[in-house]
Amino acid sequence: MALEFDVITLLPEMFCAITKFGITGKANRNKLYHLHTWNPRNYATNHYRTVDDAPYGGGPGMVMMAQPLDQAITDAKTRQTDTGIKQTHVIYLSPQGQCLDHEKILQLSQLDSMILLCGRYEGIDERLIEEQVDEEISLGDYVISGGELAAMVLIDAVIRQLPGALGDMQSANQDSHVAHLLEYPHYTRPDNYKGKTVPEVLLSGNHARIERWRQQQSIGRTWLKRPDLLTKKYPAGLPDKEKELLEEFKQLQHLAINQQETDTTKGIGVTK
């Protein structure tokens, strides 16, 4: 059964970026998932299709009204039920939600369906959240103009986990953050670009050496850029093999820095 997405949004046109282009576009054409949008303005009760109003208690901005969102979500649930979905799951993309990470994406990819609620303005009437929302999810500790971009990020990440979405499922398994480690560096032709060469080990044809180098680079780059992920992966400390690889990486970094300083000194003509 294809994964069912229903999105409640004031800007349904934005989701063409998901359904028509790239990996998610191809997955859509291959019917790995279905995406339906529901515009709350279609459920407004006045001539102006109003979906927002001033907040009680005063303050800047406007708040999305409960009634149009409530009816849109209800219709989305009905559509999913009619397709055979037994249990719906409503997610509100909100800065107050759990931060989206790889573990959460894996959990969501096991669902049969989800309804994504995209907020705008200053937020959504709290009563609608209490009545209809099962979970709140955030992209991170910052604010964007609406939930559409956050919903598209979530959809893209989930679709990558669906069997058949990628040409090689190993690509998803080796992505950064999959194992709490950053990915090793990649190179392609030519082997010499502007004087910078591809590491010799990658040209050796020795698969054992290549795999060891990649593990070393993955651990080293994580230590260098995101040491918090190493703590997450190895809460009791690095195992002996990983310690050895990290020490080798540090030595290579030290040698590279020394070489760079030497080259710079030569380049500016410093003499003793």
Rank of each mutant, 00 (worst) to 15 (best):
G22F: 12
G22T: 04
I23M: 14
G25V: 09
K26D: 08
K26S: 08
A27I: 08
N28M: 15
R29V: 07
N30K: 13
N30A: 15
N30W: 07
K31G: 01
K31M: 10
Y33H: 01
H34C: 13
H34N: 11
H34V: 07
L35W: 06
H36L: 14
H36E: 11
H36M: 13
T37G: 04
T37R: 00
W38F: 14
W38T: 02
N39G: 06
P40A: 15
N42A: 13
N42G: 05
N42H: 10
Y43A: 09
A44Q: 10
A44H: 02
T45C: 12
T45N: 13
T45Q: 14
Y48S: 12
R49T: 06
R49K: 15
T50Y: 09
V51I: 15
D52Q: 07
D52S: 09
D53V: 04
D53R: 02
D53K: 04
A54Q: 04
A54N: 04
A54D: 06
Y56D: 03
G58F: 10
G58Y: 10
P60E: 05
P60L: 14
G61L: 12
G61F: 08
G61D: 04
M62G: 03
V63Q: 05
V63A: 10
V63P: 03
V63I: 15
M64Y: 03
M64R: 00
M64A: 06
M65K: 11
M65N: 00
A66L: 11
Q67V: 07
Q67Y: 11
Q67H: 09
Q67I: 04
Q67F: 12
P68C: 14
P68Y: 12
L69V: 07
D70A: 13
A72F: 05
A72Y: 00
A72H: 01
A72N: 00
I73A: 14
T74R: 06
T74V: 08
D75R: 03
D75A: 11
T78P: 00
R79N: 08
D82R: 09
T83I: 11
G84F: 09
G84P: 00
G84D: 04
I85V: 14
I85M: 11
T88D: 12
T88C: 14
T88L: 14
H89L: 11
H89F: 15
V90S: 02
I91S: 03
I91W: 05
I91D: 05
L93Q: 01
L93P: 00
L93T: 05
P95W: 04
P95I: 08
Q96D: 07
Q98W: 01
Q98F: 05
C99N: 03
C99L: 13
C99T: 07
D101W: 01
H102L: 12
E103K: 10
E103P: 00
E103C: 05
K104L: 15
I105W: 09
